[in-house]
Computed example of a mutant assay.
Amino acid sequence: MKHAAERFGALARGRLMYGDAMKELMLRFRLTPIYDETIREALMEHSDFDGVKGIFKEISEGKIDLRFFRSKDKPTPLAYHILYRHVDIPELIAPENVATDNMTRLRISIEGRSIDMLCFDCGKLTRDASIASLPDHPFCQDCSSKLLAPLFWSSAYATNILHKKQDKQSLDENEQKALTRARRSADLVIAYGRRAIIAQSVYGIGPQTAARVLSKMHESDDEFYRDLLEAKLQFIATRPFWNN
């Protein structure tokens, strides 16, 4: 459809498109001459119906031995693309090659982010630290402490709470919960370093889930990111039922 759209002038020629952008073209150009031309071209120029008839004829005559393969765990790469549009979370049924692509995209996405980090020893807030450039065991630039909490919500709010705690001021229930959560995140960072920050930056992964993933002590980054992706997908799959 991309090439047909280029010929019609709807898309600039030579434009690079991948993944979801390519899949959206069908919806974008549905009920247009571009869609009709794509179907016509596929049927008339890229389909070998005579060849298909010949294969079926040889199967019926016993000249071709037909064997069946049933994938018990995941759809085959061909079946996956057929099922893709009919499941809520297609990543959960992705074959190995597609899952690897998803894992790579997750890794690139995480390493391209910046986060704020709060030191629980001196109270220093470091803003916009690039995850990709963090050392294996991050430390505070002011006091060298490794007790750093990665903050993915209001950094100023968490910093003010910590300062109140350090000044021995009383905290309300919500403030205490927020500080406890941040401290749990910091405990993971001091134990697991940069990987703890990476784990907690994944959508749906909090300190508890991160601790479970990190405790596996993965020997390779591929294994680590694969478990992070599985945890993320598990969260997405179960989240709608939490309030039921």
Rank of each mutant, 00 (worst) to 15 (best):
His86Met: 15
Ile197Cys: 00
Ala156Gly: 15
Asn244Val: 09
Asn160Thr: 09
Val202Trp: 00
Arg194His: 05
Val87Ala: 09
Ser145Ala: 02
Gly206Ile: 05
Arg212Lys: 14
Val213Trp: 01
Ile205Phe: 00
Lys74Glu: 14
Ile59Leu: 08
Ala42Ile: 11
Asn244Arg: 15
Phe49Trp: 04
Leu118Ala: 09
Leu25Gly: 02
Pro75Ser: 06
Ala156Phe: 12
His81Thr: 13
Met117Gly: 03
Asp36Leu: 12
Gln166Glu: 15
Leu228Met: 05
Phe8Thr: 00
Arg195Gly: 06
Arg181Phe: 12
Lys216Pro: 03
Ser170Gly: 01
Gln200Arg: 01
Leu83Met: 08
Leu11Pro: 00
Pro33Glu: 04
Arg85Gln: 14
Leu228Ile: 07
Ser109Asp: 14
Lys124Cys: 06
Pro95Leu: 08
Phe49Ala: 11
Ser114Tyr: 11
Thr238Ser: 14
Ser170Asn: 09
Asn97Arg: 15
Ala42Asn: 12
Pro240Trp: 15
Ser47Ile: 06
Phe56Met: 13
Gln234Arg: 12
Pro240Thr: 15
Lys164Glu: 08
Lys146Ile: 09
Ala132Ile: 13
Met44Pro: 00
Asn243Pro: 01
Arg181Gln: 14
Ala21Leu: 13
Lys232Asp: 07
Asp73His: 12
Phe241Ser: 15
Ala199Arg: 03
Asp121Ala: 12
Val202Thr: 03
Ile131His: 01
Ile93Cys: 14
Glu61Ile: 07
Arg7Glu: 10
Gly54Pro: 02
Arg107Trp: 03
Arg15Leu: 10
Glu223Arg: 14
Glu6Val: 02
Pro207His: 06
Lys146Tyr: 03
Leu78Phe: 15
Gln208Pro: 00
Gln141Pro: 01
Gln208Arg: 13
Met103Ser: 14
Lys74Asn: 08
Ala182Asn: 10
Ser47Leu: 05
Gly51Thr: 01
Glu219Thr: 04
Gln176Pro: 00
Leu214Val: 14
Met1Pro: 06
Ala178Trp: 04
Phe29Asp: 06
Ala210Met: 03
Asn102Cys: 08
Phe120Arg: 02
Pro135Phe: 10
Leu162Val: 14
Gly9Val: 00
Ala5Arg: 01
Ala149Ile: 06
Met103Leu: 10
Gln200Ile: 07
Ala99Lys: 14
Pro77Gly: 08
Ala12Tyr: 09
Ala12Pro: 01
His46Ile: 12
His218Pro: 04
Phe235Thr: 10
Gly14Trp: 05
Leu66Met: 14
Ser133Ile: 07
Leu83Lys: 11
Thr104Glu: 12
Arg226Tyr: 11
Leu16Asp: 09
Gly9Met: 04
Gln208His: 07
Phe241Asn: 08
Thr238Gln: 09
Val213Met: 01
Pro240Gly: 04
Lys146His: 13
Leu92Ile: 04
Val87His: 07
Lys72Gly: 12
Thr180Ile: 06
Asp88Cys: 06
His137Met: 08
Asp36Tyr: 11
Asp88Ser: 11
Asp48His: 11
Ala199Gly: 07
Lys53Val: 14
Asp222Ser: 11
Ile236Thr: 08
Arg67Asp: 06
Asp121Val: 01
Met17Ala: 09
Gln166Lys: 15
Phe224Leu: 02
Pro240Met: 10
Tyr157Thr: 13
Ser155Lys: 04
Arg40Ser: 05
Lys177Tyr: 04
Ser71Leu: 09
Thr209Asn: 02
Ser130Leu: 11
Phe224Pro: 07
Cys119Asn: 07
